[in-house]
């Protein structure tokens, strides 16, 4: 269902089944989803950074980014944090439960444009979820990119997502730098905020470095400033932003940030297109 596809009903919801639910951390679960009965689109494909509208009948819809794909099973992953009515209803469905989905929607991370560049991925908390498919694709096409670095932090060590993936990414050539806001027993790593991790990167080739950032909005702002302070131009910084997306296709007006309709023009936006609006309180 790409934007260039012939006329489709963007409101049509397809039934999908939860085939696996893996707890990640307190209140955060990764769901593996698949079309019910193979009756949907077997060729389901999305681009890293895009989102789906997940629907629990009676509870409503929510926009959730894809956090990975499942090629063998023709399914995909969504990492969901318990937040409101819909996420709680989804958590009660459990494995085998059926819910609805429409998508994928939105602008992805510009991975093709980043070919030949160094890539710095910066994530805070659950903000790693929309970046994970990008990490996977960059790893799979390792030779097309320069230096790769992941700067990731969470409030606590147990809040760090996808802990089994770090070694895989390091093997694929990623420099993985972690930090937490508050340590817990057993944590021997860094304590501090994510933007400080830029200090771990030496000898940046700023002219050909691309930065992808996702996390709480305040973290995005400070991480972007840290990148700018090191000389990376704003046109090479991309951020994934969150507002209440309801229609997913730019016709309900909910997810506006200044001139941006984030479901349509985002969620991934070039930083110099968003910076001016992010700095206005209550916009």
């Amino acid at each position: 269902m790409t934007p260039s596809a012939p006329f489709v009903d963007p409101w049509q919801i397809h039934p999908v089944q939860i085939v696996e639910a893996v707890p990640e951390s307190e209140g955060v679960t990764t769901y593996r989803l698949r079309y019910c009965g193979g009756g949907g689109k077997a060729d389901y494909a999305f681009q890293p950074g895009q989102f789906n509208m997940l629907y629990v009948p009676g509870a409503g819809e929510m926009a959730i980014s894809m956090s990975g794909e499942d090629r063998q099973a023709e399914g995909w992953l969504h990492t969901v944090r318990l937040a409101g009515v819909v996420t709680h209803a989804m958590s009660r469905l459990g494995v085998g439960g059926v819910l609805g989905m429409r998508g994928p929607f939105g602008k992805p991370w510009p991975l093709d444009n980043a070919q030949g560049c160094d890539v710095i991925v910066v994530a805070g908390g659950i903000g790693l979820a929309p970046l994970r498919p990008a990490l996977q694709q960059l790893s799979a096409q390792r030779s097309a990119y320069g230096r790769l670095a992941l700067l990731y932090g969470a409030r606590t060590p147990s809040g760090l997502l996808y802990r089994n993936d770090y070694a895989t990414w390091q093997d694929a050539g990623w420099q993985v730098e972690l930090t937490v806001d508050r340590h817990e027993p057993g944590w021997t790593g860094r304590v501090g905020v994510v933007p400080q991790l830029f200090d771990r990167l030496r000898g940046l080739n700023t002219g050909r470095t691309v930065v992808f950032i996702c996390g709480p909005e305040v973290m995005i702002l400070f991480a972007a400033r840290a990148a700018l302070a090191r000389g990376i131009p704003p046109q090479q910084i991309w951020v994934s932003l969150e507002r209440h997306m309801q229609c997913g296709v730019g016709m309900c007006g909910h997810c506006q940030l200044g001139p941006l309709l984030l479901c349509r023009d985002g969620p991934v936006v070039r930083y110099d297109h968003a910076e001016r609006w992010l700095q206005v309180e209550g916009l």
Binding site: P57, G58, A59, G60, E61, Q246, C247, M251, C252, G253, H254
Partner: peptide, 16 residues
């Protein structure tokens, strides 16, 4: 053109 989508359910929650 701003709009919102509402869930309108029967009492059993089987027809929405």
């Amino acid at each position: 053109f701003c709009s919102s989508v509402e869930e309108v359910s029967d009492l059993l929650g089987e027809q929405i």
